[in-house]
Nucleic acid binder design. Structure first.
Length: 466
RNA sequence: GGCCCGUUCGUCUAUCGGUUAGGACACCAGGUUUUCAACCUGGGAAGAGGGGUUCGACUCCCCUACGGGCUGCCA
């Protein structure tokens, strides 16, 4: 038997930026669909008009784009489907799977008051047309009162709800507007969604939604309710945990592919595999690998994953990432000259950098122009003796062929002549070349800067020898 | 309150009845080294508690504790 093509969706409410939990949910849906040749759809749940904003929608789309998650077709606006949702509610009314409920909010509140710990039971459930008053009414689902509603969840397993715990949910409000729970079901059905992968805060909702699917005679999608991400303290993720918005992670300089890797591993695993690229993630991702306990955000681990990905990147890709990062954070783009100095040093730089800004910081020698500004430690490294050694090195370098071996040879020679270790020679070179004491290897810098720039920078300091 | 979900090293996790409970991050100690790193080697570190079931439980069942979710004519 040929199975239907997979269709997943990500359905955020446009009430703010895309946060890290939502990003992971989107990633799971994307991985599942894309790994199986299926479709990944987007639906904006904008039925809450008061809280939904176009800016938030834009921010979410931008976040997904940055993360590298592409979706099929245009994003669907749930709000625009209102008429369709109402139509379904009316159809259910016609079919008898829903009924008119004339209870007012006050009556419902009073009922609850006198029936503690019991779901509301409308007195209108079994009334006929002859009893209908001339008043506004809500349409409620005629849900089964006995038996169980069972969700066969791919993550949570078989979850059973006693139908006596589930009330007849409102489908259409008395003002004629559909309710979110109905909209979700109708949209998922109309969009052909086969797999609903979402936060487990919707697990209980699923029971109600399934009743609607059943009432309409629609095929239920496969459900997978994934645990939410928590902060480092184990509490629900919120602003006080620092970065929670995806854009904040982008600004911190984690490459998108590293975020994908880290996020994928948060709550999902494939044996002991920790570091992998998209191809592997797509190949390995499966619902069965998702855990049931909420995972905490761990920035240290993220850093490690990020460092690995940066180290794996070919130079041109890395340069592209750096460009994107600078643009993203509103910093000036790299000039041609900066690129020409930075590029040869990339292989050395990417070995140690864990984030993009960290790499830029280590590569600062390639970004500055003469005269190189010295920080206090660099000044301290350039005492009279050091400047003297710089002078002899500069002289020796004048005729050196610019290969790493020769440079190293020359430096060692100067060290020997002065009866000191290589470190003593390297320190002032480092200071003169980069203006600081923490840099890549001095030889890497010399190779990257080239003969002219290197000698110029060295001379800038050597000339000041006493 | 009721219903539902969860609980393996500090953290992310492996284990799908039989392991000295494995890996990764972090941490500690050594090594390497021209700085900072990076890297290499080694180390400490876990089944929430209590009952069962079983020849044998981290794995299955029950209870408790602790987290979390839902319980709206919110989404």
């Amino acid at each position: 038997m040929t199975s239907d093509p997979i269709v997943t969706r990500f359905a955020p409410s446009p009430t703010g930026y895309l946060h890290i939990g939502g990003a992971r949910t989107a990633l799971f849906n994307w991985l599942y669909a894309r790994g199986r040749g299926g479709k990944f759809l987007l639906r904006i749940e904008d039925t809450d008009r008061a809280r939904s904003t176009p800016e938030a929608t834009a921010a979410i789309l931008q976040g997904l784009t940055w993360l590298g998650l592409d979706w099929d077709g245009e994003p669907v606006s749930q709000f625009e489907g209102m008429a369709r949702h109402a139509e379904v509610a009316r159809a259910m009314l016609e079919a008898g799977s829903a009924y008119r409920c004339y209870s007012t909010p006050e009556e419902i509140a009073a009922w609850r008051e006198s029936h503690p710990r019991q779901p509301f039971q409308s007195p209108w459930r079994d009334k006929g047309p002859e009893d209908w008053p001339d008043a506004p009414y809500a349409i409620r689902l005629r849900a089964p009162r006995e038996g169980e509603t069972i969700i066969d969840d791919q993550v949570q397993g078989e979850v059973r709800f006693g139908n006596d715990q589930l009330d007849d949910m409102v489908l259409l409000r008395s003002d004629g507007t559909p309710v979110y729970m109905l909209a979700v079901v109708v949209d998922d059905h109309d969009m052909g969604v086969t797999h609903v992968i979402r936060g487990d805060d919707h697990l209980t909702n699923a029971a109600r939604q399934v009743q609607v699917f059943d009432a309409m005679g629609w095929k239920r999608p496969v459900f997978a309710h994934i645990p939410l991400i928590h902060g480092e303290d184990g509490k629900k993720l919120s602003k006080r945990h620092g970065a929670v918005g995806l854009h904040e992670f982008a600004a911190l300089g984690y490459p998108a592919e590293a975020m994908r890797n880290y996020l994928a591993r948060l709550g999902w695993s494939h044996g002991d595999d920790e570091l992998f690229d998209d191809a592997k993630a797509l190949e390995w991702f499966d619902l069965s690998g998702i855990g049931r306990a909420p995972a905490r955000l761990d920035f240290k681990k993220l850093e490690h994953v990020s460092g690995w990905h940066i180290g794996q990147m070919p130079g041109d890709r890395l340069l592209g990432e750096l460009d994107a990062f600078l643009t993203e954070t509103g910093q000036p783009a790299l000039t041609q000259r900066q690129k020409s100095w930075l590029t040869p040093a990339l292989d050395a730089l990417k070995e140690k950098a864990k984030t993009l800004p960290a790499l830029l910081d280590q590569g600062r020698f390639a970004l500055v122009e003469r005269p190189v500004e010295l920080d206090p430690k660099a000044v301290a490294a350039l005492d009279t003796v050091s400047r003297g050694m710089l002078k002899s090195l500069t002289a020796a370098l004048q005729h050196a062929s610019w290969t790493r071996d020769d440079l190293e040879q020359a430096a060692k020679q100067v060290a020997e002549e002065n009866g000191v270790g290589l470190g003593k020679v390297a320190a002032p070179v480092r200071a003169a070349l980069a203006g600081r004491t923490s840099t890549p290897s001095v030889f890497d810098m010399m190779m990257a800067l080239g003969r002219d720039e290197t000698l110029a920078r060295l001379n800038d300091q050597a000339d000041q020898a006493g």
